[in-house]
Structures are given as C-alpha cells and as structure tokens.
Write a protein that binds this DNA or RNA. Structure first.
Lengths: 211, 211
DNA sequence: CGTTGTGAACAACTTCACAGCT
DNA sequence: AGCTGTGAAGTTGTTCACAACG
C-alpha cells in the first residue's frame, strides 16, 4: 500500500533527521522545501511521502516540520525505533568495513554477529562484536534472533550463505556480491547492491546521453 | 528516450553475459525467460528492454539470443566496450577494497588512479595503480582524462572531494558516503549508494510488511 | 503570508497479447 | 512448436494546484 520508492525516500529523510539531531543541529523546524534540497527531490514529493504514512497532523502549517517530531513519527511508522539485530557474513575488506558502521545504531539496526569461513581471519580481527565460523550461520541466527544480514562474500559462495541465512530464519539480506540473489519462497527481502555495477551503470548513462 | 530502469537492467544483462563468457560457459543461446531468471525479472521485460535499443534483429526467433552477439550488441549501444578511465577517491577500507575490483575491467571501466589525503596510507598500499594526494584531484583527473570516480571518503569531506572532481571535468561519480550528493549544474551523473542506508531500508520493509 | 496535506491530472513504467519469424 | 519484437492496455508513481491552517 506504500510504495518502495516512497519508503526509500522516507528512510532517507529519517536518517537525515537523525544525523541532524546527533550533531545537535540548531534548527528546530524544517520546511518540505528544505528537506527536499537535502535529499534531492522536490518539496511536493516530500509532503506526499509523509502524507502517505497516514494522518498525524505532524507538520505545522505555515512553519514546517519539527525535526524531533518528524523523526519520531517516521521512526514509529516504519519500525526504526527498535534496532533490528544484524549479522555480517564475510569479513573481508567490505565486511570488516561494515563492522565499523555498526556503531551508528540509531538507523534501525545494530550489528550483533560476524561470520567468516576462515578461522585465521576471525582470530585476527579486533572488535567487540562476537565472531563465528560460517558453518554455524543457521544455528547462531536462530539462537540470537538475528533478523538482518549484510552478505559480503565472494560471488561463488553467495548462494550457499543465503541458504544458511534463510534456514536460520533471516528476514532481510543486503547482498554485495555481483551475483544477483533472489528469494524464491518470498520469505526474505533482498537488496542487491553491486558496487562495480554502479560504475557500469554510470558508464552507460554517460554514453547514452553522449556527454 | 531510454529509461533509467531499462538502462539498469541492460547493464545487469551485459555483466551477466560477460561473466558467462569469461567462465567459458558452455551454452551458446539464452532465451528471454532464462535471462530473466538470472536477473530476477519476467521475460517480457527482458525483450522490451532489448527492443528499446533499436532494431538490431539480434534475437533468433524460436531459439533465443546468442550470448556473444547480445553482449556485443548491448556493449556497443551503451558504450561499454571501451573501458572508461576511473579513479578511486579515499583509500580507507572501502576504497582499497574497490582497488581490487579494478582488475575486472570488462565492465565498462578500468581503475587508473587512487587518491587519499593521508600520505602515510598511500605509502603503505601495495598496488599497480598510481596513487596521488587528494589535493591534486582536479589536476590529475584533467591530465589523465579520467571520466568516472568512486567516492569513498567520510561524509565530512564528500562535498569538497566532489568539487575537486567536478573542477577536473569528471563525468560520473558513485558516492558511498552517507551524505547525499547532488549535481547542481547538471554537469555530472551521481549515484548515491548508502551502504548502511540499505539496512535501514530493509528494516522498514520488514516492519511495514509486518513479517 | 508561507507552508502543509491531498484529490485529481499527468507521466512513466510494466505487463499483456499476439503477429511474425525460424 | 517455440521464441522474439512491439503496439496497446493497464498499473504504478509523480507532479500539480489549491483548500485549509496558523
């Protein structure tokens, strides 16, 4: 009932507001025009998106939105106020980079486990997050009630890792391998983020628009 | 005239075909249904997308598409056959991870320069790619005719790095910082890829669909 | 006044359905 | 028979325009 595009923008608004609150930014009120500039869309899109969450009478006519109230409102409606438990699968360069992001947990998630197939690598890493062997993914995900996962393994093992996660009852996966993953059984949400694919896309955009 | 959604899927098809060709995959012909399964869209979307590139009579009625011919056709039409020169700005964890991807250059780009603000870090890294100080971005981008950039710096310096890139005449930027970048002057294409934002999005998807 | 909230108009994308080819 | 290519129909998302509000 609420479109994916709208949801995407709402989470962007939410994160922008969180960042402002964290930095103790001075301003109390933001208009839809100002918010739109920050995330790169026109003001009416912002208003329509917020409106799609149902009437909360959240905006102050003639003045704008209260930063604090709007953040709370979106957070409540999208279930971002309780951080979802998250695992990182594959602790190579990208995976270990993501381990650091885990600290910023007022974005709807917190990192509570890391997995790798190499015991050596697990021993080497210095982190507060508990690390496990990939073989135990299903078991640990179930036991620790983990709902989300960053998948940062090579393309060749992406499918197997996904199966283990699904077996453990995972609800969402962000896949960084260039192999596009799909949820056959519709039991899990998957976001495929192909890092170098983004460059291929840019390359195409430039050529097609012959700039 | 050709939509961004279509372009995205065409580059996915292109990369899938490239991977198959590289692995010396046995099959010569692929139907739109098979291709669709690989990238996760229905067959008619594949046909429509290919058709949008203009008539090339590329498919074999009744049999499917020749892997080699289709890859070539899309590559030609989207300008992916000549690798565009690419730089990586910021050589922290993500940036140096991306340096490795550079090897797979049959995806429309090749990495020809790296930049970081820390001389120490530049000295430490072992790579064939020439590394420079961030201060020289504009100059090197111009001199080396660099068209694309991966931007993997902290949010606080993203804007400044972008300005230097634009000054050097860059044509496209993939931005990995959580700060959303925009091209005021329309002189450059920007793709904002917020790694932990993807998790926030998943978190919202799960809550909204109350799974 | 400047700004929100939203039905209505519009534009874009996706899916359908089938003619045409091998 | 099986598959491609594409107008036409259908669906989804975006933009407009304006009433209501402080």
């Amino acid at each position: 009932m609420i479109s994916e595009a709208t949801l995407q923008r709402l989470t962007q608004i939410y994160r922008t507001l969180s960042r402002m609150a964290r930095k103790g930014d001075e301003c109390e009120l933001l208009s839809s025009t100002q918010l739109g500039k920050l995330i790169g869309v026109p003001s009416h899109t912002i208003r329509k998106d917020i409106s799609s969450l149902g009437m909360g009478d959240i905006g102050n006519s003639g003045r704008g939105y209260s930063v604090e109230k709007l953040q709370n409102f979106i957070g409540q409606k999208l279930g971002l106020t309780v951080a979802k438990r998250t695992a990182i699968i594959g602790l190579g360069r990208i995976g270990s980079a993501l381990l650091e992001y885990g600290k910023f947990s007022n974005a709807g998630f917190s990192v509570v486990a890391g997995f790798d197939s190499s015991i050596n690598r697990i021993d080497l890493l210095k982190t507060d997050v508990p690390l496990y062997c990939s073989y135990d993914i299903a078991e640990v995900v179930k036991r620790e009630k983990i709902e989300l996962a960053f998948l940062a393994v090579p393309a060749s093992s992406a499918e197997q890792s996904m199966e283990r996660l699904v077996e453990g009852g995972i609800k969402g996966i962000v896949n960084f391998s260039p192999m596009i993953l799909q949820n056959e059984n519709n039991s899990v949400f998957i976001r495929n983020v192909d890092l170098s694919g983004e460059l291929t896309m840019l390359s195409a955009l430039i050529s097609v628009n012959n700039i």
